[in-house]
Simulated assay, not measured.
Amino acid sequence: MMNTFVPHRAKELKARFGSFLLKQELNTMGHSQKTDKLMLEDRQNWSFHDLLAHKEGQCAFTTFLSLEYSEENIAFYLACEDYRNTKSSSKLCSKARKIYEEFICSDAPREVNLDHETRAISLKNMEQPTLSCFNLAQSKIYSLMEKDCYPRFLKSAVYQELIT
């Protein structure tokens, strides 16, 4: 008899595994129980901005996006944050090219959902990369996550694990 793997069962296992990994990562951060209780109250009141500003919030949101098969959005956002903090001007060009090829160009392996105009502006900005060359694209993805993904995240099991 052949064992068939039901797709909804796979999603359930992935959700449970993701929650387990999140708990493990949060437990290894070295917080005391008293600190955890204070942080719990803070976590329940986090805005989207707050969520991204905290390591455990980023971890939980990334786990959630992975379950929704849209983790490229947070990966792009974080890559842009890293890019904007680049100190060496000699690295700007290669970092910009890597971000563009991984997330923005039409055949990118982790292509984010951007309109044609934003893609064109990003490509134009690649001619003379500056620290702000991805600001428009990053703000579009931030808004997409805030308005679309974040409300679903707040209703998810991953968020419930974060606040309990």
Rank of each mutant, 00 (worst) to 15 (best):
Q33I: 08
I141C: 06
N135H: 13
D115N: 07
H8D: 15
F76H: 02
N125R: 05
T28Q: 11
K34C: 08
L114G: 05
L144D: 09
N3E: 15
A157W: 03
L78Q: 10
T164A: 11
A120T: 11
P7W: 08
N113F: 11
L26M: 15
L144M: 08
Q44F: 09
G18N: 00
R97E: 12
I104S: 02
V112C: 02
F48G: 09
D115R: 00
A15R: 00
R97H: 09
Y142E: 03
F61P: 10
I99M: 05
F64H: 04
S66P: 01
R110K: 14
P151E: 03
H54E: 10
T130K: 12
D107Q: 12
H54V: 01
C133R: 04
N85Q: 15
E41T: 15
V158N: 05
E71N: 11
G30S: 04
L52V: 08
Q138C: 07
S89N: 15
C93A: 09
N45G: 14
A53T: 07
Y69V: 07
K34G: 11
E25T: 12
W46I: 07
C93I: 01
A10L: 13
E56F: 05
E72R: 03
N85R: 13
Q160D: 12
L21H: 00
E56L: 04
Q24M: 10
A157Y: 05
T164S: 13
C59W: 02
L40V: 10
K55A: 05
L67Y: 07
D82G: 06
L13P: 01
F134G: 10
H49Y: 11
M29N: 08
N85P: 03
A79W: 08
S88N: 13
F48N: 10
D107Y: 09
Q138E: 07
